[in-house]
Design a protein around this nucleic acid. Structure first.
Lengths: 197, 197
DNA sequence: GCAATAATATACCGTTCGGTATAAAATGGT
DNA sequence: ACCATTTTATACCGAACGGTATATTATTGC
């Protein structure tokens, strides 16, 4: 046990709160006052625990990936379901995350990608976002490639084209969620998108 | 001819420059220094010509609609083309706009919708964005409804669902363009998206 | 109990923010 | 020529920005 006064706040809880502020308002739109108020701490505590605004943002991105994004990938691995059902489950899981009542609307990564093309966006944060972009694409590419190898997906399909298309569908539903569309409306978008297969 | 010193800058040119800054950096991310530098004028000139930052933003949105968005709709009215070809032309026109080399990537309205859900986003600007959202949806809804009346689109299609779907496709390609995808890659996304018809 | 240590709270730092007062420069009307 | 008018350029305003020094409070090891 280290000497000195103990933390009176939960670091994970504070990070979750900060993430939601960034998720809703973006990096530039989220002030330290916004962040520390939501986290329930004051600035020196934030700086001691997370470094600075940029590092808090990067930690928020990582927290989003762990707590809000990774779980969807499990849907693609349900061996008891058909190829189509697994993909549908994946997309449905995602749109529920994008339309949840307790969290901000849309996709934090999608919002961050969009903001990160600004030339004065912090470099380390941009690098983190670029890495996450590749991961997301890799998941879908592997899924379609494996399905084609297994014979679940016909050989005349272009797995790269399908990957780009469904990446687009996910960014699209994220934008629609942000525009106020309901889970039900996004469900019909997902169902329609699956008709290409 | 009014008395007094003449303007030494072109108002439309300055507005175009301001629009591109907002388009790339968003409302919160664009400072008055960014804006006036790009416009080639100083702050009092900007305030005299446009009012304030929020009104400049609203004027930028209107300028985007006029100069970058409205023209695409003409593709839907090419009576010499099939229903499918008109829709394809519309989407292709849009993705070229989203990937143009001379303008910022993506869609200014899509970016603005995303940013406008922040609770400290200016109210008048949010109202303008909400109005533009409805216009965009109306264009597609009218297109599909008319096509169904003409018999070009089978009756078993849900025009509302198709509208939501292609709104999602457009937001999706806009996000992919912002993520760095090429016109060629977005073309395959558009071609894939048309398979649902 | 008493130093050493670490987290809290407050007040403050220089800079940048959106916005403006002020004065110089340029035009038209007379 | 001169005055009214409008735009320009500079300097400045209070507020908010990201970030930190300082002092107080709480905790552990001894």
């Amino acid at each position: 046990m280290p000497a000195g006064r103990h933390r009176t706040f939960d670091e994970k809880q504070a990070l979750e709160a900060a993430m939601r502020v960034f998720w809703q308002k973006g990096y530039a739109g989220a002030s330290l006052t916004d962040l520390t108020h939501a986290m329930g701490i004051n600035k020196p505590s934030m700086y001691a625990a997370f470094g600075n605004k940029e590092q808090l943002f990067i930690a928020s991105l990582q927290n989003y990936l762990n707590a809000y994004a990774s779980s969807h990938v499990d849907c693609l691995k349900q061996d008891n379901q058909t190829f189509r059902a697994r993909l549908r489950g994946y997309l449905m899981s995602i749109i529920h995350g994008q339309c949840g009542a307790t969290a901000p609307k849309g996709c934090f990564i999608s919002v961050s990608i969009s903001e990160s093309i600004s030339d004065d966006f912090p470099a380390a944060a941009k690098a983190q976002i670029d890495a996450m972009k590749l991961v997301g694409e890799g998941v879908l590419l592997d899924f379609f490639s494996a399905a084609q190898s297994n014979g679940e997906l016909a050989d005349d399909h272009d797995v790269s084209a399908l990957t780009q298309y469904f990446m687009g569908v996910m960014h699209g539903t994220a934008a629609l969620a942000r525009a106020g569309k309901s889970t039900q409306q996004l469900t019909t978008v997902v169902e329609t998108s699956l008709k290409v297969l």
